[in-house]
Write a protein that binds this DNA or RNA. Structure first.
Lengths: 147, 147
DNA sequence: CATGTATTGAAAATGATTATCACTATCACA
DNA sequence: TGTGATAGTGATAATCATTTTCAATACATG
């Protein structure tokens, strides 16, 4: 099973945004750079704080709007937090399962193939059709556990 | 793999609350009854609206507080919604994975044993220690898909 | 019954997210 | 290179779920 870190794909993302007809504005570039260049899930406010260092006139509203677009395009993935707030992380295509370090926030992705047989079995037994699944693992990364 | 619906275990829940030193007050009884007697995940506001039919002087604050206690005791389980809000559903002990109908909200539980080998593998490959996992499947139940 | 404590619920506060809206930047085309 | 239509921006206000505050009440125990 391949384990991946989030990629630093600023240029690719900008191309995708452009191909969708979105304009490549300075605020969008800054937001894209911030979220593309970390392997941690960031809250909109965290993105805002980091991005404002480089682009002080940035508005929090624009951060929310840009993250929303990136998520709709599958470039960025939403991470569900226990408190109900959302954070976002750069997403490698087709990989939607997360392994999150509860101390430092470093996040790995892993493929969902292994869930296939489990889901097939559940569909047979329940009669449900499964359309979506949310799988997030939380624990400690090698740098954050001591034993 | 056993599939279970949420149990109607009002009496058991009240015993657990009492054993914890909590008082069995009228507002708590009503909240417990409402959440124990449905197999759908309910928002605190939904619980409030239903419970008020029987107990009009109930406060929404008490609903939040009671659900919080029930969740801490493992009697009720939190369901993560896409919009970031939370709903709650009666939880059979030791079963924490959910299969939710996106139309009617009817929810089944299934065991997490099948995840064990996947998690073992991920721990070996990543070096992480996995402490918690969130798995929610969403789809349509037999009554809600037509084909 | 008296007393200390848990509980309640109305109201206010909080905090994340979303909507509004006047202003600005960008792009296609003349 | 203008220029106008339109997408985008960001300050501000609004919204909405949740939490806190606090005075009043209910309960348990001596």
């Amino acid at each position: 099973m391949p384990l991946e870190m989030s990629p630093a794909s600023t240029e690719h993302w900008l191309e995708v945004l452009e191909a969708q007809g979105y304009r490549l504005t300075a605020p969008r570039r800054v937001v894209v750079e911030v979220i593309a260049q970390t392997d941690r899930a960031l809250s909109p406010l965290a993105v805002f704080d980091i991005a404002r260092i480089r682009y002080p006139q940035l508005g929090l509203t624009t951060v929310y709007r840009t993250l929303e677009k990136l998520e709709a395009l599958g470039l960025v993935q939403l991470v569900h937090q226990a408190n109900g707030c959302h954070t976002y992380i750069a997403a490698p295509a087709g990989h939607q399962h997360l392994l999150i370090c509860e101390y430092c926030g470093r996040t790995l992705f892993f493929g969902g193939d292994d869930l296939g047989s489990l889901i097939d079995q559940i569909e047979r037994e329940s009669g449900y059709r499964v359309h979506e699944h949310l799988l997030q693992l939380t624990g400690t990364c090698p740098g954050c556990h001591t034993d």
